[in-house]
């Protein structure tokens, strides 16, 4: 048997967990929000999502083919990027919007850095930022939910708030169910919660980033209320915009967030504060994606100062 023995460095046993499985699990956890979007906005949400995933996977495959590297689309990371990008565009966007966004997200957001694990910024958010800069009109025109023509049309509740309008026709229950204008994946809060709880229970994400992110945004929105200090409608701000989608599924992206629990809390607070600042005083009605992108840039620095204490030191 001698010449057939495998030699290699220990350990000789290994967990069953794989990177591909993690990617697919996160993808699965986002499915309820997608179903919610189809129910709320109709099949157009599904078609846009599929275009986005297809474009992301195709872009990755083509780049890997051209650069003669191993084609790794089966690891699920491109599917996840495509899915998340689709969740960040309006349900009534033209079909080429998610295609352009996904191509950019994969090519510039991920592959130019060296592919999986090497990128500094969340690829899906890079794609979204590109779309916002290139086609702002298409990215900020929102349709109303099906059969709810009396809802705020043409704008999200946050946009209405930014313009100084009062959003009255929307109950917290409507917001929870997602019966409002908004991006495909962000509206159905209840479905997002189901997915987030699944990821938390299975240990794919930890509470640190979502709690510190949402908590600090909510706190600041409460403090800087419209009718003076400590009067803000913090729940409205949690249930609107992309806060939940961003905090649970995008800020928690392993590659672009800090490594330790302490670092993740700092990261989450940073995201939360920036989101609140943009929503309160910035030019955009919504700040989640830019907040995450900015904190992505700070991740190496946070990692440097939040190392674990080495045993015996």
């Amino acid at each position: 048997m001698d010449n057939k023995l495998i030699i290699g460095s220990p350990p000789h046993v290994h967990t069953r967990e794989t990177t591909a499985r993690i990617m697919w699990m996160v993808t699965v956890s986002l499915v309820p929000a997608g179903i919610g979007a189809v129910v709320i906005f109709g099949l157009q949400a599904l078609w846009l999502t599929l275009w986005s995933i297809l474009a992301a996977v195709a872009t990755e495959a083509v780049i890997q083919f051209l650069s003669k590297s191993k084609i790794s689309i089966a690891d699920g990371s491109a599917v996840l990027t495509g899915l998340l990008l689709a969740y960040n565009i309006p349900p009534n966007a033209p079909f080429w919007i998610p295609i352009a966004g996904s191509c950019f997200a994969i090519a510039i957001g991920k592959m130019v850095f060296g592919g999986l694990g090497q990128n500094i910024f969340n690829p899906a958010l890079v794609g979204r930022a590109f779309l916002m800069a290139s086609w702002p009109a298409a990215m900020t025109t929102f349709c109303a939910p099906l059969g709810k023509a009396d809802a705020v049309t043409g704008a999200t509740p946050l946009a209405a708030l930014k313009e100084g309008k009062i959003v009255e026709s929307l109950s917290y229950l409507d917001m929870l169910l997602g019966l409002r204008g908004g991006c495909i994946g962000e509206v159905c809060i209840i479905a997002l919660l189901v997915g987030a709880v699944f990821l938390l229970i299975r240990g794919y994400i930890s509470w640190h980033i979502p709690v510190s992110f949402i908590g600090s945004t909510a706190l600041l929105m409460f403090i800087f209320g419209r009718q003076g200090a400590f009067t803000g409608d913090w729940l409205f701000h949690i249930l609107n915009g992309g806060l939940l989608l961003g905090a649970c599924f995008m800020a928690t992206d392993y590659v672009t967030s800090p490594l330790t629990a302490r670092g993740q809390i700092i990261f989450g607070i940073g995201c939360g504060v920036l989101t609140a600042v943009i929503r309160l005083w910035g030019g955009y009605p919504e700040g989640v994606s830019y907040a995450i992108l900015m904190m992505n840039a700070a991740t190496p620095l946070i990692d440097r100062y939040t190392r674990k204490r080495i045993y015996g030191t």
Partner: peptide, 9 residues
Amino acid sequence: ELPCIRCGA
């Protein structure tokens, strides 16, 4: 062996 995805495990 795949690239590190910085999961922190």
